[in-house]
């Protein structure tokens, strides 16, 4: 930061130039307001599902009822806000469709994420589902893609027991599941490495025809995954927008009466999102205007 005094042009132009050098904490405050106010006002907007969310929905719809699916929770609290809505909707979708779900995690805190969804969605909306028969929680295992690599050959090669310490051979649900290839669908709710990309590289590539692969991804990671859609990944949910669209699709087909908000978190977060996005646009515009105003000044905008 330069300390030297410089001659600012008078009037509006000077104001614009000064604006460009504003203390960044004002911007932080603006972000807080942009998110806080619409949240307090409970701004809600309708969602129109687009192609990728539809493809994800269709992938889960199209496999026969009662199929065994693998949901890998490859995220942690840092990305929970983006991915939990997808996870909730997906578990509700699979359970409503009658699929049997195997949960696992490639991230150390992923098991906690899965537990949360099991408690708040699976056990809540589908209390008739029995652990071990309708669903199983394998939990976390260290090794990143190494875990997928083992799963591709055998489940019990990667997991000795499930998360509660029951031997894999004692779990009825897994009696006929030898490897990843015996699942009809694999979904990775993924926040980065290891995640959906590794599922493509190590599981889908090993047996491209065996199962459908869908991914729920964070905004940051989705760019990296786009080239895999639609040949290697049949469905993709991009950021909270994708979550909101998917929630809409799921709750339209499988509505719930009690506490529907658990399947509407994504849509809830789209309201503050609108204002935040407008703020970012405004900031970019202001930054550029200020640059134009400062053009030609000594020590001007950089």
């Amino acid at each position: 930061m330069q300390q030297r005094k410089e001659q600012l042009p008078p009037g509006f132009r000077g104001f614009l130039v000064r604006l460009g050098r504003i203390d960044r904490r004002w911007i932080y405050l603006a972000v807080a307001v942009a998110i806080g106010v619409p949240m307090l006002a409970e701004l809600r907007l309708p969602e129109v599902p687009e192609k990728k969310a539809r493809a994800t929905f269709e992938a889960i719809e199209s496999i026969p009822e009662g199929s065994i699916v693998l949901l890998s929770f490859d995220y942690d609290p840092a990305s929970e806000a983006e991915l939990e809505p997808m996870a909730n909707a997906m578990v509700h979708h699979c359970a409503s469709k009658g699929h049997r779900i195997v949960f696992m995690a490639l991230w150390p805190l992923g098991k906690q994420m899965a537990d949360k969804t099991i408690d708040s969605v699976l056990k809540y909306y589908h209390p008739d589902k029995v652990e071990g028969v309708d669903y199983a929680q394998l939990g976390f295992k260290t090794g990143n893609e190494g875990v997928i690599k083992l799963l591709a050959n055998s489940i019990d090669g990667a997991y000795t027991t499930d998360a509660a310490g029951t031997a894999i051979s004692e779990i009825p649900l897994l009696a006929n599941v030898r490897s990843v290839g015996d699942f009809k669908l694999v979904a990775s709710i993924s926040a980065g490495y290891p995640g959906a990309q590794q599922w493509v590289q190590y599981a889908d590539s090993a047996m491209p025809e065996a199962f459908k692969l869908v991914g729920g991804t964070t905004g940051v990671q989705s760019s990296q995954l786009l080239p895999y859609f639609p040949t290697q990944m049949e469905g993709m949910l991009i950021a909270v927008k994708g979550a909101a669209e998917y929630e809409t699709l799921v709750t339209e087909k499988y509505p719930v009466t009690e506490s529907p908000e658990r399947l509407g978190i994504g849509r809830e977060r789209m309201g503050p999102q609108l204002v935040a996005h407008l703020l970012i646009i405004a900031l970019i515009v202001l930054g550029n205007i200020s640059m134009l105003a400062a053009r030609g000044l000594k020590g001007g905008a950089r």
Binding site: I35, G219, A239, R269
Partner: peptide, 23 residues
């Protein structure tokens, strides 16, 4: 540019999540 747009969405969501916790 597109990646930036998606990143903004991602980061904002995380903050929204924290605000939801606080509020």
């Amino acid at each position: 540019g597109a990646a930036f747009g998606l990143t903004v969405m991602g980061r904002m969501t995380l903050l929204i999540g924290r605000f939801e916790f606080l509020f």
